[in-house]
Design a protein around this nucleic acid. Sequence first.
DNA 1: ATTAACCTGTGACCTACCTCACAATAAACT
DNA 2: AGTTTATTGTGAGGTAGGTCACAGGTTAAT
Lengths: 191, 191
Amino acid sequence: MKSLFKQHIEQTLPITEEDFEFIWSHFTQKSLKKHQFLVQEDDYIRSDYWVGKGLLKAYYNNDGKEHILQFAMEGWWISDYDAYFNQTPASINVNCLEDSELICLTLANREALCQSLPQMANFFRLKAQGGYVASQKRILSFLKNNAEERYHELTTLYPTLLQRVPKTLLASYIGVSRETLSRLGKKKLNE
Amino acid sequence: MKSLFKQHIEQTLPITEEDFEFIWSHFTQKSLKKHQFLVQEDDYIRSDYWVGKGLLKAYYNNDGKEHILQFAMEGWWISDYDAYFNQTPASINVNCLEDSELICLTLANREALCQSLPQMANFFRLKAQGGYVASQKRILSFLKNNAEERYHELTTLYPTLLQRVPKTLLASYIGVSRETLSRLGKKKLNE
DNA sequence: ATTAACCTGTGACCTACCTCACAATAAACT
DNA sequence: AGTTTATTGTGAGGTAGGTCACAGGTTAAT
């Protein structure tokens, strides 16, 4: 886990062994079983989480209807970022789709890290940039694509998700009902 | 303009007069008239732009249909961030809805600034975080809200936009046709 | 001042997607 | 092994929102 995380950082920028030990000391570890919650609505958000192993979903719950905001598998980050950055109660839930192992970074430790190690400010800056660009692409997909095109975009962007996530949740991620997703492409075949 | 921009930075974190002069030396200025393009599809993106005065739209053009990705008015940033950060050709257009005055930051100058002034890495980190959170909210709005609710969210979030932007473009921003936007709320009144 | 271009509303019709209901298979617990 | 509990497919019918067409009002350009 520790070495996986080091690789994750070095993918963005180089760090010394010594710096990494210092960085690592700011994290804690956490293990969760399938179906367990990492975050629940109204929780106070302790940390941002990096997934070492497993798979999770972040979703907004509208009386029983789950709207998937984000998935996170190995090497991805997940949290309720609005609640985390602004220290407000969570409005979403984060739940494990598989047994998961996480490392956790409190907001205080993140800020401390960014102040004492300028390269970490750059690391998180570049990560946030990437997240912003990815979000913009998803928004554009809602604007210019229909359900079938959005599903196709999702499958080409994250092919491994299809193997691990039920269709119901993929449907929710692209903003259609599971019935509609199940029927995509059928129409063409019949004519 | 210069002092407005200083205020903009100080809104996020404090800087010395000396640091600001150094920061300011990394920017250039640009003026554009209404209807002029700041960015066009396939352009190589020189800069990220901060709006000192005016109003612009960033949109994806789908044979004549404009899909609004972003507006930007005084104090906001705008660019094609995918193209800017990854130095690829632009896939969107940015055009002025009003005469505008901008200050411009090349990617090279941004990175130089972040390396030489750690506080600037933090500034852009916090800005990117904020952009990410705002994008997530817009995505959630697509997932859980209908056209009327999305419009209502837009109007409460950015009331000043309504005064300055034609309804056609607001419709496009929330992902509905202008006809549908024009009819919102009518149904209830008649029953 | 006149023409042209933009902006907004509205009627009529159409369609992509939703909801509810039922069924069959697969996976997970005791 | 047997019983819940997920997951997926599919039919039937409904609705939010799209498209096309026309019109009046406003703004901008010659």
